[in-house]
Simulated assay, not measured.
Amino acid sequence: MPSPVQKAAHWAIRGYQLSLSGLIGRQCRHLPSCSEYTDEAIQRHGFWPGGWMGLARICRCGPFGTSGLDLVPETLPQGSAWYKPWAYGRWRGVNAPPIACEAVEPDGG
């Protein structure tokens, strides 16, 4: 069950998505968008760690930053703690699932 702070953050992000985001235009280089990522991170991991994850994601979403599929991690990063907030965020790279490659056998016939 989300805390009142998580609910407030969700509605603040939702308000941004329905107002300012439409005026600015969709310019996010990632999927899901930075606001969707931040909302999911806060709902999954709490306001403090999720907020730092979202901030790190927004910082990576620039012209020289990352792009592509970037999912919220299932678990908090190892070594993260409330007194080391920078450890929650991924400041470089993306959190995409590995690409599975399968070898295809040629037909012998």
Score class of each variant (00 low, 15 high):
17 Q>P: 00
73 P>D: 02
35 S>I: 06
100 A>P: 00
105 E>S: 08
39 D>N: 14
20 L>S: 09
57 R>P: 00
46 G>H: 05
7 K>E: 03
97 P>A: 12
30 H>P: 00
67 S>P: 00
41 A>M: 09
8 A>C: 11
54 G>H: 10
4 P>A: 05
33 S>T: 10
40 E>M: 10
16 Y>W: 13
1 M>F: 03
85 P>K: 13
87 A>K: 15
103 A>Y: 03
2 P>I: 09
75 T>Y: 06
95 N>Y: 06
1 M>P: 14
75 T>I: 03
71 L>T: 02
97 P>C: 08
16 Y>M: 12
79 G>Y: 01
75 T>C: 07
47 F>M: 13
36 E>S: 13
62 G>Q: 11
95 N>Q: 09
58 I>N: 02
29 R>I: 03
1 M>I: 07
40 E>S: 08
54 G>T: 08
85 P>M: 14
104 V>P: 02
37 Y>E: 01
8 A>V: 12
54 G>N: 06
60 R>H: 07
51 G>L: 13
12 A>M: 13
66 T>A: 15
16 Y>L: 12
58 I>D: 01
38 T>L: 14
77 P>C: 12
26 R>F: 05
60 R>L: 11
82 W>D: 01
58 I>G: 02
105 E>Q: 09
58 I>E: 01
65 G>D: 04
7 K>C: 05
104 V>H: 04
62 G>D: 11
33 S>E: 01
95 N>S: 10
82 W>A: 14
62 G>W: 08
76 L>C: 07
62 G>C: 13
5 V>G: 10
86 W>Q: 11
8 A>I: 12
50 G>Y: 02
68 G>R: 15
43 Q>F: 02
2 P>T: 04
98 P>Y: 03
85 P>H: 08
4 P>V: 09
48 W>M: 13
35 S>K: 15
77 P>Q: 10
27 Q>F: 09
82 W>F: 13
104 V>Y: 01
76 L>Q: 04
28 C>P: 00
61 C>P: 00
3 S>T: 15
40 E>T: 12
97 P>F: 07
